[in-house]
């Protein structure tokens, strides 16, 4: 518990110093007081994820994840621009159901955000107990659960599994 509070305090303090940018005594004192308040208020929320910070291999997978994500995001934008300027709106939209093996809340949040910024998909709702995601897909190829999972989720689930679980 004390380690979680120390981590939150360090993160908030550095964030405050970047935002205020000039190193004067008043800024440092106000930042320290605010950091202590925030660390006592929010340490319950981050208590579950504290064990993730220890393994250094997770950071390497995270740095591998960023360029993959950026490339998919760029492809998504070009795809969206093509659909907008085409005269006959080439799409078959629908909401499909996909299955995921991730369990923790942080991993599910990252998976939902990644799917929203990916080509052709947008997360609508998460069912955490059953491990299902409801995804709005702009070009529905199949409405079967297993095949849709193969098309949409697999690529990122493999990386996020190594980062967060």
């Amino acid at each position: 518990m004390i380690k979680v509070r120390l981590n939150i305090f360090a993160a908030t303090f550095i964030f405050w110093l970047i935002l205020s940018w000039t190193l004067t005594a008043e800024n440092i004192i106000i930042g320290a007081v605010l950091g202590i308040c925030v660390s006592f208020l929010t340490s319950e929320l981050f208590n579950k994820d504290a064990k993730l910070l220890k393994k250094p291999l997770r950071y390497l997978w995270f740095f591998y994840y960023i360029p993959v994500f950026l490339w998919e995001c760029l492809k998504a934008n070009i795809d969206g621009a093509y659909r907008v300027i085409h005269p006959s709106l080439p799409m078959r939209p629908g909401i499909v159901k996909v299955k995921t093996n991730l369990k923790s809340e942080t991993a599910l949040t990252f998976l939902a955000n990644t799917l929203t910024l990916n080509p052709g998909t947008m997360t609508v709702d998460i069912d955490q107990a059953g491990g299902f995601l409801y995804v709005h897909w702009v070009d529905v190829k199949t409405d079967d659960v297993e095949k849709a999972t193969e098309y949409i989720v697999r690529k990122f689930e493999r990386i996020l599994m190594r980062i967060f679980e």
């Binding site: 939209p93 629908g94 909401i95 499909v96 409801y134 409405d143």
Partner: peptide
């Protein structure tokens, strides 16, 4: 949803 939509598993 739009009337040309294919499926709606959520509903």
């Amino acid at each position: 949803l739009w009337e040309k939509s294919v499926c709606d598993k959520y509903a």
